[in-house]
């Protein structure tokens, strides 16, 4: 996940101890309903939505990293919740489309493939 942080010029808000873990796929959505219904084993969630349900949804789906795009800042309460759930939280200045493009181009696909970041 170090590479995700550098590719997205992201600020790390919590979960430094998990950064060495690898992830194999990601998804991007502002609709938590869709994440719950369509996501399979994607480890990373990129979103522009800010509320505690983003973290809770990620936790329910066993995701290990949430990236907030467009410099949206999660609240301290959300970061604390992520800490409790063992989830890495980052904040990127990029827009969702751009951030996804960078990750996809570096080999992080939408479904669990064999390449990884």
């Amino acid at each position: 996940m170090y590479e995700i942080q550098s590719l997205l010029h992201a600020e790390l808000l919590c979960g430094e101890e998990y950064l060495q873990n690898e992830v194999y796929s990601a998804c991007c959505s502002d609709m938590m309903s869709d994440v719950l219904a369509y996501v399979k084993d994607q480890g990373v969630l990129l979103t522009g939505l800010i509320n505690p349900q983003v973290i809770r949804t990620a936790s329910m789906m066993d995701m290990i990293c949430v990236v907030f795009v467009r410099d949206k800042a999660p609240t301290e309460e959300m970061v604390e919740l992520a800490r409790e759930c063992g989830i890495v939280v980052m904040c990127s200045p990029m827009r969702a489309y751009e951030a996804c493009g960078h990750l996809y181009y570096s080999g992080l696909r939408g479904n669990a493939g064999d390449k990884h970041v």
Partner: peptide, 11 residues
């Protein structure tokens, strides 16, 4: 708020 896609009950 990120909900209301009508997939909850089917899920």
């Amino acid at each position: 708020l990120g909900f209301g896609a009508g997939m909850g009950l089917p899920n």
